[in-house]
Amino acid sequence: MARCFGAEQAYAAGHNGSIKSMPTLHKQAGFSIALNTMNSTPTLPDTQEERAAKKQPPLSAAPQHAPQPEGQPVLHLVPERGFSYFVHAAQDFARGFRHARLGLTLAWLDIRLRYRGSILGPFWLTATTAIMVAAMGVLYAYLLNTDVHTYLPFLTLSLVLWGFVGGTMQEGCGTFTGAARLIHAARMPYSLHVLRVAVRNILVFAHNVPVVAGVFLWFHVTPKWTWTLLPATGLWLVDCFFAVLLLGILGARFRDVPPIIASLTQVMFFVTPILWSPQLMTTGQAWLLLDPFFPLIEILRAPFTGDVMQTAVWPAALGWSAVLIIATFCLFARMRTRLAYWV
């Protein structure tokens, strides 16, 4: 477990991470290298000969500093105890988010690679959702004896949201096992892998948004209390990150987690009001709040469909999120250093 004092200061201190004591080497070379790598401060090979070969100006003017021990990244690792578990878990998050651009790129490349060579590419997702919504919407409106004009927009939004939840949970299980090669290649923040999976699933979700928008336009649905959408979206993003982290840790340790999650997702799909509106329950609606997925779906869905929300929905959503976040953070703090051994 890492106690990296010094390392953080070094990252903050800026660019003097790898100034050499040997004056003949122009390693610093006048350009600043962002010190946001876990790996270290990289410097490019730029001896006079190589520079000459590349027809670049010699760097005789490069500043020559004395070694600055305080500017150098220091990696000090000892077994964790007490408070250091939490400090280093928080530092992992901070470093992971500093690499957010890399996480984003990796997520985007994942999507691109998954659909490479296919004609529609990621828009197969859009097409699939559109077809499913059209088929299920008409059938279930008939079965449930409701008006297609209110049911179809409801179903579309529900299915797209649930697709995101289910997909994120399923892929979350493989967050760290799937990144085993990266984890074993160099030291990097674990939250970077979490970010990658979370962003990947958000991008997949984004491909389904046109279906929702199309159905809403078709049926003239306009979102009602739009201001609640902002905190709801924020809560979803935070929960998405922590859910991926939680399932990633569990999935790395217990190889049974992916199938368990798969069946759990299927059960929850039918138990949670996805296909059916919670208003269909004449009594005992409050029991639905015990299902963590219901309040979260409801805070994002009700503003669009104009459902009457129970007053306890928001507190329940926040409560369940708090449980998820606290439990996950504690688990991550405790297990962070074990992840490399597990994958």
């Binding site: 477990m1 790996n39 990696l75 690792l77 000892v78 077994p79 074993h184 030291r187 490399a340």
Partner: peptide, 18 residues
């Protein structure tokens, strides 16, 4: 720094290339 110690300590001063 990929495997963190179970006991004892590792201290590396300087950037690391692997």
């Amino acid at each position: 720094g990929i495997y963190e110690p179970v006991g004892g300590s590792v201290t590396v001063r300087g950037s690391i290339g692997t």
